[in-house]
Write a protein that binds this DNA or RNA. Sequence first.
DNA 1: CGATAATTTGATCCGAATCAATTCTAGTGG
DNA 2: CCACTAGAATTGATTCGGATCAAATTATCG
Lengths: 213, 213
Amino acid sequence: MTFQPTLNRPIAGTPGIPMYLVGAAQDARSIYHDGSEIYGEGEPAGSLYMVEFGCVRIGRFTREGRRQVCGFSYAGDIFGWESESEHRFFAEAVGYSGIRVLRPSRDAEACAKLFPLVIQNLTRFQEHLLVLGKTIVDERLAAFLCDLADRQGGVSQVELPMTRSDIADYLGVSFETVSRILRRFRDQGFVHVPDIHSIEILDRPGLEAVCRR
Amino acid sequence: MTFQPTLNRPIAGTPGIPMYLVGAAQDARSIYHDGSEIYGEGEPAGSLYMVEFGCVRIGRFTREGRRQVCGFSYAGDIFGWESESEHRFFAEAVGYSGIRVLRPSRDAEACAKLFPLVIQNLTRFQEHLLVLGKTIVDERLAAFLCDLADRQGGVSQVELPMTRSDIADYLGVSFETVSRILRRFRDQGFVHVPDIHSIEILDRPGLEAVCRR
DNA sequence: CGATAATTTGATCCGAATCAATTCTAGTGG
DNA sequence: CCACTAGAATTGATTCGGATCAAATTATCG
């Protein structure tokens, strides 16, 4: 996994990132390499994590060993919210990633500041629920690409730090299908795929139309 | 839609319901009949809602008119969290339902009290994401039934206030498939279906095994 | 009781999973 | 720097599950 310059944008000034969470004295920074675990299912929870650069996948393994990914976090995103004392999901770095560990206090002030961030997370999951509810898989992949573009600042040049399997486990399809639909989007002129971890969106309205079907 | 006695359990004393949210002077109570709208997509947001009895479905319509349901709320549940000033989803009563409108203050104290509830909501959506990620639809329906049983207090006699179409739109399948799989579960001895809006779970371990596949 | 909606069940078709083989990519050590 | 290797990605062939279309039955409500 190569270095991802776009995802490595500076934290300060990035929209939506609460400055009061950045740089507190007790916060620790860590670098993770591709695939390394940030926390595992069943481990004690309590901290929050902020992606400084790179990407993180959140998910779980079924009894049968099938992996399911329920979300990706990008630079500026905060993850690790848990209602129990144990993590119910794992978190792993996707590519070379920098993570800051936050230990927010439990007081009312901190809750108030974190509140809009949880709600944002909630909304994001809710939106993804609707994506997974779509029976035609083209619609799911189109929605994924549009979301990815939006979260990278609305640029047409989108980076895909995750593998096709990651995307597949996120969209609830096989990785072969992800590959095939991406191919179809290329043939239809929706996207250009300069290399395996980049996508250029050529026809955003076209992609949006696929989502809305 | 008939009255649902089990879902009509008293609020006070029900685990997980914050007493400080109940009975505030400015809170309003409303009764909704089956299918009536509590709020619509695009309406101004701001309040929270608590189900006193009955059931609520949260969802959205696609451009094409297909309905997608992203969650059900039961007695004691709070819904209506929004990150924007407008509702991004609709909320409709499923059967005869009582809803209390809460107008929590924006101060830090209130946020701190609401915090665990949002996180619980977040976790619930996250769990449902994993359900929707399952490719075999039997697993989705089994997971739905187990969740329903748990949220009605772990009883084996489960009430289904929603229609087959509601379930279908929630699980991302056709309503015919819901009907067929329910039939299969009956034939396999997992459940007994005394009437159209009730299910008795005869073999919970068996159902769990289906989820875990 | 009658009308309308919800549900069940059947038949057919299509899309995506699966199995399989090849090509491509990235990381390793010579 | 380049050959080597393991994993990732693509592409093809086949199978199977669930959507869709259709019809009959059952609930629900005025």
